[in-house]
């Protein structure tokens, strides 16, 4: 089986400071990988390098494109990369306002990616938007409301609908449950799990919340000071951590 994403010795420096270095891994279709680490560990830098928001200084990020198989997304042309960004890739931001158009209705937000790939039938676009709002548990009567009228959890679900409407194969998530109430988090996690399974999505989730990766991620990567210090099955890394830092991280979680 071909990996969906093949990451080879990625490095990104901010001046002399290391953003992330020597990161390599393969992600296969349907796999969900979590990246955990404290603030400044390089996990967001890595995610942005993978998603094409930052250009790494070294390494390759190969994505299994529909037309041409594995292509290095760092060296491909910007139009191609942006096309991936609105078709095969999705990016869920921590703050919904970074991923939504706050002055456009919920329906318009969901429809944008369809229109970006040349959907030109209003009725079809609207029906698709209604369908997707339903899948993220937003009722049809809210379709013409702007996200500013939504709660934080609803905004985040709207962002997910907006991202998944074009049937992407790879979803990048940056702290998708950060800043939400615990009960809202649980609902969002359940929703994401269902969507990942139904759509056979691959996902890379950056978070500092170990409970989130335990529930969502098949595999885990632990980062510290820009380097990957431990990888493995999520439950194995959390239950039998090998590296001193991971042991510290796991033992620092408050039990409830």
């Amino acid at each position: 089986m071909t990996p969906l994403l093949q990451v080879e010795t990625i490095a990104k420096f901010y001046g002399s400071r290391i953003g992330c270095a020597d990161v390599s891994f393969d992600l296969y279709p349907g796999e969900v990988m979590g990246i955990v680490g404290e603030s400044g560990s390089g996990k967001s830098t890595l995610l942005n390098c993978l998603a094409g928001h930052l250009t790494p200084d070294r390494g390759a990020v190969r994505f299994d494109t529909r037309a041409q198989g594995l292509r290095d997304t760092i060296t491909m042309s910007e139009p191609e990369r942006r096309m991936l960004g609105r078709t095969d890739w999705a990016f869920v931001h921590q703050h919904a306002r970074d991923g939504l158009r706050m002055n456009v209705s919920a329906g318009g937000n969901v429809g944008e990616r369809l229109m970006a790939v040349n959907a030109r039938h209003y009725g079809d676009i609207r029906n698709e938007a209604i369908d997707w709002l339903g899948r993220v548990e937003i009722t049809e009567d809210r379709i013409d409301d702007r996200p500013t009228a939504f709660s934080g959890g609803m905004q985040q679900r709207l962002q997910i609908a907006r991202n998944l409407v074009t049937g992407p194969r790879l979803v990048f998530m940056d702290e998708p449950t950060g800043g939400l109430d615990v009960s809202v988090q649980a609902r969002l996690l359940d929703l994401l799990r269902g969507l990942v399974r139904e759509m056979n999505l691959s996902a890379i989730i950056v978070t500092h919340d170990l409970a989130v990766v335990r529930l969502l991620a098949d595999r885990l990567m632990v980062m510290k000071d820009g380097h990957v210090i431990e990888t493995g099955l999520t439950d194995q890394v959390l239950d039998d951590p090998q590296h001193a830092y991971t042991q510290l991280l796991v033992s620092s979680v408050l039990q409830v």
């Binding site: 318009g108 990616r113 970006a116 040349n118 209003y122 609207r126 379709i143």
Partner: peptide, 14 residues
């Protein structure tokens, strides 16, 4: 990348 232009028209109709 002109999808956004249609978003404006979509908003109009909605």
């Amino acid at each position: 990348e002109y999808g956004l232009m249609h978003v404006k028209l979509y908003e109009d109709i909605s």
